[in-house]
C-alpha cells in the first residue's frame, strides 16, 4: 500500500522543527487547525500571533516583523491569502521582505467546500510579483523540506499546500529536495510530463498507463514555479521533444503558463497544458473534482499523446 499524507501536515512539522530558531514567528488567521500551524502554537504560544479572521492585517504584521529581523510564517487557506494580494504586492514583495505565506486547501482537490474555497489562481497571481518564490509541493516530505529551507531565504514566498492526502513520494530522499530545482521522478524519451502539487502523483499514474501502451514518459515534480528550473526544461526538450504540464489550477498563468513563457523565450517543443479550463469548481470529493475538471491521470495521458503527435 502506498503511504498517504497531506502536504499541510508537512508544513506543520516543519514549523515545529524551525522553532529552534528564535527568530521564527508564526502568524495565524483563525485557521491554524486547518493549515497545521496549531502544533507550533501549542509549543510556542509566545511566538504565535493570532490575527483573528483578518488576512490583510496578517500579511502586513508579517512585513513589520520581517523588517525587524524576524522570520514570519503566515498561513490561511490559499483562497484567503488572495484577499491580501495587494498587501503582499505593495507591503511584502515590493520592499522584498521575507514573509513566508502558506496557502493550504489549494485547488479543486480541496473538495466539498466548493468553489468559494477552491483557489485555482493563486500560483498565477503570486508568480506575477517580483521577488516572490512560488511553490506547490507534491508530498508531505518535500513540503517539510522546502518549508525548512525557506527560513534561510532573503525573499518572500508563497507556498500552496493541499487539504487531502496524496501519496508520499520522498521518504528517505530528503536531500534531493531543493527550492528551485525540479525533480525527475521517472525517465522516458517520448514525452515529458511536468507537474506540481497533487498532480504529480496523477502524472506518475499517467506515465504508467502510457508505458503499458509502449510510450515512455519522463515525469518531473516542478515544486518550484518561481524561480523556474529553466535548465531542466531545456534538457527535457532535448531528450523528449514534447511536453505536458499538469496542475490543479487554471490553465492560465500557472505552471503551464510558466513553462510556455520559458519555451517561447528559449527553445521550442510542442506543449499541452492540463489544468482547470478557465472555469470555477463546485462541491465534490477530491477524486471527483479531478475528473470533473478533466485533469486526472487519463486526461494527462491523452494530452501526452497529443503532444507527441505534434512533434515535427
Amino acid at each position: 500500500m502506498t503511504k498517504m499524507a497531506a502536504t499541510r501536515d508537512g508544513y506543520g512539522e516543519a514549523l515545529l522543527e524551525l522553532a529552534n530558531n528564535p527568530k521564527v514567528v508564526v502568524l495565524e488567521a483563525d485557521l491554524g487547525k486547518s493549515t497545521k500551524s496549531l502544533h507550533f502554537r501549542k509549543a510556542h504560544p509566545e511566538r504565535t500571533v493570532s490575527c483573528g479572521i483578518g488576512e490583510q492585517n496578517m500579511l502586513l504584521i508579517g512585513a513589520g516583523l520581517a523588517a525587524s529581523g524576524y522570520i514570519p510564517f503566515a498561513s490561511t487557506f490559499a483562497i484567503f491569502t488572495e484577499r491580501a494580494f495587494e498587501q503582499m504586492r505593495n507591503g511584502v514583495a515590493r520592499p522584498n521582505l521575507a514573509v513566508h505565506v502558506c496557502g493550504s486547501h489549494g485547488g479543486t482537490h480541496t473538495g466539498t467546500d466548493g468553489s468559494s474555497a477552491q483557489s485555482i489562481e493563486d500560483l498565477a497571481i503570486y508568480r506575477t510579483l517580483p521577488n516572490v518564490i512560488v511553490m506547490n509541493p507534491s508530498d508531505v516530505v518535500s513540503t517539510k523540506q522546502l518549508t525548512i529551507q525557506l527560513a534561510d531565504k532573503a525573499s518572500p514566498s508563497y507556498m500552496r499546500t493541499a487539504r487531502n492526502k496524496t501519496p508520499v513520494l520522498y521518504e528517505g530522499r530528503e536531500n534531493e529536495i531543493e527550492i528551485g530545482k525540479g525533480i525527475v521522478l521517472k525517465e522516458g524519451s517520448d514525452v515529458a510530463i511536468i507537474a506540481c502539487g497533487v498532480m504529480v502523483s496523477e502524472a506518475l499514474k499517467a506515465a504508467e498507463s502510457l508505458q503499458a501502451e509502449g510510450i515512455q514518459a519522463s515525469v518531473v515534480d516542478m515544486h518550484t514555479l518561481k524561480p523556474l528550473d529553466g535548465p531542466l526544461i531545456d534538457n527535457l526538450v532535448l531528450t523528449c521533444g514534447a511536453l505536458v504540464t499538469a496542475e490543479d489550477h487554471n490553465v492560465i498563468g500557472g505552471l503551464g503558463g510558466a513553462v510556455a513563457e520559458h519555451l517561447t523565450a528559449n527553445t521550442y517543443a510542442p506543449l499541452e497544458r492540463v489544468g482547470v479550463k478557465d472555469r470555477f469548481g463546485e462541491s465534490g470529493q477530491s477524486d471527483e473534482m479531478l475528473e470533473v475538471m478533466e485533469i486526472s491521470a487519463p486526461f494527462i495521458a491523452a494530452a501526452a499523446k497529443r503532444a507527441i503527435a505534434r512533434k515535427a
Binding site: I53, I79, F80, R83, T112, D113, G114, S115, S116, A117, E282, S283, G284, Q285, E288, V292
Partner: peptide, 28 residues
C-alpha cells in the same frame, strides 16, 4: 448537500440554489 452536482453546495451559492441571493463562503 456537498454532493457533486447538488444544488446545496458546501457554501450557499446564488448560481446553484433558488432563494439564495448571494454567493458566500468568503467571510466579510
Amino acid at each position: 448537500y456537498r454532493v457533486l452536482g447538488g444544488i446545496c453546495q458546501g457554501h450557499v451559492d446564488m448560481k446553484w440554489c433558488p432563494g439564495v441571493d448571494f454567493s458566500a463562503g468568503s467571510l466579510g
